[in-house]
Computed example of a mutant assay.
Amino acid sequence: MTQQRTTSRLILRPPRLDDLASLFAIYGDPATNQFNPSGPLADIHKAEALLDTWLKHWRDKGYGQWTIATVANPDEIIGFGGLDARLYLDTERLNLGYRFAASAWGQGYATELSRAALEYGFAELAVPEVFAVVRPAHMASIKVLEKIGMQLVETLDDVPGQAQSLVYRVGR
């Protein structure tokens, strides 16, 4: 697995089994899911399944979602995010994604993580492009994606009965 990475304020490391409680706290929080059509994780078993998919992605591909803490408080997990291979309906793309605890919002962490993830993808994975999917009402995440240079390229009809998701892309 790739070594831990740091930015000026963040520690980014591969997830571990002992991250389960933090993952469930963040992904099970209704506040962090207000734009997620499937809503918060209902129970710890769903969190275990999500963590298992992340660990498998790391084993299979050598990269994936990072566990995020601050340099100032390395023992407190504030979120999860990074790059992973994800299906956009039937097309696999390298996807940038993140979810932060509500207590970490509004401090620029999503932008800092996203810049580090793009740098990693372009410099170390040598990928030609990175994508992100965002719900159309999620203005905070749209602003992050635009701030890091991503551009709206298409929509994705991935949530039946709801407005189409927006697909952003940035090239190397």
Score class of each variant (00 low, 15 high):
170 V>S: 03
28 G>A: 00
150 M>S: 02
166 L>S: 02
170 V>F: 01
74 P>M: 01
36 N>T: 05
95 N>Y: 14
88 Y>H: 07
77 I>V: 11
59 R>V: 03
55 L>I: 05
56 K>Q: 06
114 S>R: 06
13 R>H: 05
164 Q>M: 05
89 L>P: 00
135 R>T: 14
158 D>V: 13
21 A>T: 13
97 G>L: 12
25 A>R: 14
145 L>F: 12
90 D>M: 02
138 H>D: 09
12 L>Q: 04
164 Q>C: 10
138 H>N: 13
97 G>V: 02
12 L>D: 00
48 E>Y: 03
122 F>H: 10
154 E>F: 12
29 D>F: 03
113 L>M: 14
111 T>I: 14
137 A>G: 09
25 A>Q: 12
151 Q>R: 15
117 A>H: 05
144 V>R: 05
83 L>W: 00
55 L>H: 02
116 A>Y: 01
56 K>D: 06
60 D>Y: 02
166 L>M: 06
133 V>I: 15
113 L>Y: 13
139 M>D: 10
170 V>T: 15
51 L>C: 10
76 E>K: 09
81 G>T: 02
137 A>V: 15
7 T>Y: 13
73 N>G: 04
50 L>T: 10
122 F>R: 12
156 L>A: 06
23 L>S: 02
47 A>T: 04
171 G>E: 08
100 F>S: 02
84 D>K: 15
53 T>I: 04
130 V>C: 11
116 A>R: 15
123 A>L: 15
4 Q>H: 09
156 L>F: 08
10 L>W: 03
122 F>D: 05
28 G>I: 07
62 G>D: 01
2 T>H: 12
85 A>S: 05
12 L>A: 03
126 A>H: 14
96 L>R: 01
85 A>D: 07
95 N>L: 08
82 G>P: 00
106 G>K: 13
110 A>K: 06
59 R>K: 10
